[in-house]
Amino acid sequence: MNIFRLTGDLSHLAAIIILLLKIWKTRSCAGISGKSQLLFALVFTTRYLDLFTSFISLYNTSMKLIYVACSYATVYLIYMKFKATYDGNHDTFRVEFLVVPVGGLSFLVNHDFSPLEILWTFSIYLESVAILPQLFMISKTGEAETITTHYLFFLGLYRALYLINWIWRYYFEGFFDLIAVVAGVVQTILYCDFFYLYVTKVLKGKKLSLPA
């Protein structure tokens, strides 16, 4: 565990909590893509099945349980409790265009052709693109609430910090996981445009809105 990995995890946790609190406090999930949140719930579910097969550390187990529980709570708030505020008309990304290719790729390119390993690989690939419905929704409506941009910032920062963690681990531990690294690079690149808008607009006190 190095500082980049730890701050990455905490950044991820911050993103998840920010989103939950935003929905809970405003009693509304307006502007949030339920499809992205469904995909993240699927990501955590398929990745953390190893909770049943191996124990790594109390930290590892607790964080996995927290991520899974929070992602299911978020999906519950969007599709059940605050369903009336869910902006389904703007959440029109076709998720099958992500899930099907990603599913196929995880069968073809993985570390080991075993059910758990294929599901882990599926979750790594799916996570890298799971934010697309949310970004698509923002590009359709042309704007995002500031709190939503904070959520996206921490969610993007988390994988960027993991990239530094992997560079660190390569040099100091000789560890290198090509699948995680390539997917992590793709994931981080998808946020670059957003990072630019976040720094040039939101951090200067302006609302994130896109030119028509």
Binding site: N60, H111, W120
Partner: peptide, 10 residues
Amino acid sequence: DPGAADHDEL
């Protein structure tokens, strides 16, 4: 197994 994924990471 050098090829196996590291399940310590989240």
